[in-house]
């Protein structure tokens, strides 16, 4: 039964090796998906390329279904798997600031690493910017601490809040995502930008 590392007291060295190998796969797939191009990523917000929407939701759905089926087959203990802690205020404000960073900078931290790896100079500056951003956060943390810690709701699942089973929620999300993919592909045709697609 999984997760293997916490349940079988695997040594830290092996855990770090797994991290490296998982990272290899992560980086390879991100780059293959075309996420090393900021203009492709930004295409999502102007409708000419919705790759971000497709990859992001497809990955989330795959992971979600995988966890549900693994748990059903008794292969993973979901009591141990990490569930993000929900601090209402900081999740929303943090997300808004990240959204602004996304449209201004054209990357997110993960994609900036892969883009920098293939030689995108703007991505290297994005990485530098995020280092500075984290440093500034550390310096002003005392001013933000109250807000950072406020409205804590715990490691709560959306299905619990809605009062439905995980499987129902997964199906709901899949239906919504399928509709978004369909609308997105219509948008891709409508806002088509041959010039940009050719360049990236």
């Amino acid at each position: 039964m999984g997760p293997i590392v916490p349940l079988f007291n695997i040594s830290n060295e092996i855990n770090l090796l797994m991290a490296f190998i998982i990272g290899l796969g992560f980086g390879f797939v991100l780059e293959q998906a075309g996420f090393s191009s900021s203009r492709k990523l930004a295409g999502m917000f102007y409708g000419y390329d919705i790759t971000v929407l497709k990859v992001f939701f497809t990955a989330a759905i795959t992971g979600m279904l995988g966890l549900i089926f693994l748990n059903f087959m008794g292969l993973i203990d979901l009591d141990i798997v990490y569930i993000n802690e929900y601090y209402v205020t900081s999740s929303i404000i943090g997300g808004v600031i990240m959204g602004a960073g996304f449209i201004i900078g054209g990357f997110c931290p993960g994609t900036s690493f892969t883009a920098a790896a293939i030689g995108k100079i703007d991505a290297m500056w994005f990485v530098f910017g995020s280092i500075v951003g984290i440093f500034i956060f550390g310096e002003v943390y005392p001013l933000l601490e109250t807000m950072y810690m406020s409205n804590y709701e715990g490691s709560v699942k959306i299905s619990t809040i809605l009062g439905i089973r995980d499987g129902y929620f997964a199906l709901l999300l899949i239906v919504v995502a399928s509709l978004m993919f369909w609308i997105g592909e219509i948008a891709e045709k409508k806002f088509k930008r041959e010039d940009i697609i050719d360049e990236i």
């Binding site: 549900i68 059903f72 979901l78 499987g167 997964a170 199906l171 899949i174 239906v175 399928s178 369909w182």
Partner: peptide
């Protein structure tokens, strides 16, 4: 690909939705 993908995940999602609730614990 979108249509193939949609068909596959909606079927899998429907199975996930009708799976009996189990509690897997180590």
């Amino acid at each position: 690909t979108r249509i193939i993908f949609t068909i596959i995940v909606i079927s899998l999602g429907s199975i996930a939705a009708i799976l009996p609730k189990t509690k897997t614990s180590s």
